[in-house]
């Protein structure tokens, strides 16, 4: 099985076989995270730069741990510490990073398409850790790994994704990947947060959380940006919680063994009630744990990605 991607820009560009290989590789790496010596020499001597031009705690931490457990040297630059605030262009920033000869750049950027921009201009591998409202491939892959662990397969699963669909990169990455893996995806959210043509990415669109959650195997709640309250997209968080929040009553509509997911960080009492967030069906911390393994798999696979594998 060949993995011949130099970059991970989005799940849009990955085949079903690619995704399967990433998940299988991640399963193998998961075991390392439970050892007392949580380190293998796989990427010894490689340099990984985590360039986070937008705030993120857990994704950056997850990529950093993933790199370190593979023995790579990981260096972080963040939005405030980097030159972006000094008016430097992304191309100049990229050129300056390039001459330090990194092997992989992991980039989080507020502008959709920024990782593509870098991939076109740099010799090293580029991994998209979230670009604007476009894609967040490692999140979708860890979501799917979590689903596979709990459900044994993805084919035929009914997956409900609820929240701010329009501004979510997690949704787009999940839509591409889940459809390739054979899932039946249902979306729900307020009318102001449902972007045009999203159904063409392979989803059934609802404006009622109950319709989406009904008989679902997986219920994925999205984080609502608190600052959207009072703007034109949302009247109040209270109203959002009432109509689009996941609570025990709504969750009862899903299959009895349905799992509840959230990419974090959660707004308890807004998109998800504490009872559900801490309830027996939640697999939210499992997602975070899988994040390290999936990111190890991505770092490993792009490192040898240009050579054909027998």
């Amino acid at each position: 099985m060949a993995f011949n991607h130099k970059h991970i820009l989005g799940t849009e560009y990955l085949s079903r076989e690619d995704i399967q290989l990433i998940l299988d590789t991640a399963e193998s790496f998961r075991e390392i995270n439970t050892r007392s010596i949580k380190k293998v020499p796989t990427l010894r001597g490689k340099t990984i730069i985590n360039a986070f031009f937008e705030n993120s705690t857990r994704t950056r931490l997850s990529f950093e741990i993933a790199g370190k457990r593979l023995s790579a040297d990981t260096v972080n630059i963040s939005g405030s510490a980097s030159s972006v605030t000094k008016g430097e262009t992304l191309e100049d920033t990229a050129r300056n990073i390039e001459v330090m000869h990194p092997d992989i750049i992991v980039i989080r950027h507020g502008h959709s398409g920024a990782p593509h921009y870098l991939a076109e201009r740099l010799n090293c591998s580029v991994i998209n850790a979230g670009d604007g409202a476009h894609e967040h491939p490692s999140q979708a892959l860890l979501d799917i790994l979590t689903m596979r662990q709990h459900k044994g397969k993805i084919d035929g699963l009914k997956v409900a994704i609820v929240g701010d669909i329009a501004h979510s990169r997690v949704v787009r990455s999940n839509l591409y990947a889940l459809n390739k893996m054979g899932a039946d995806v249902h979306l729900a959210g307020p009318g102001t947060m449902m972007p045009s043509g999203i159904e063409r990415l392979g989803a059934t669109v609802h404006y009622d959380i109950r319709a989406a959650v009904k008989d679902a195997d997986v219920v994925m709640m999205l984080r609502i940006q608190l600052e959207r309250q009072g703007m034109t997209l949302l009247p109040t968080l209270r109203e959002y919680a009432r109509f689009f929040g996941l609570n025990d009553d709504v969750l009862k509509l899903a299959k009895a063994d349905a799992i509840v997911m959230h990419p974090g960080p959660m707004n308890r009492g807004v998109e998800i009630s504490s009872a559900v967030a801490d309830g027996p069906q939640n697999v939210i911390l499992g997602q975070v744990e899988n994040g390290v393994a999936v990111r190890m798999a991505l770092l490993y696979l792009v490192s040898g990605g240009e050579q054909a594998v027998e």
Partner: peptide, 13 residues
């Protein structure tokens, strides 16, 4: 333009 391409690219329409 607001439409499917904008949705797919994650750009505001």
């Amino acid at each position: 333009n607001d439409g499917f391409v904008a949705t797919e690219l994650g750009l505001k329409g």
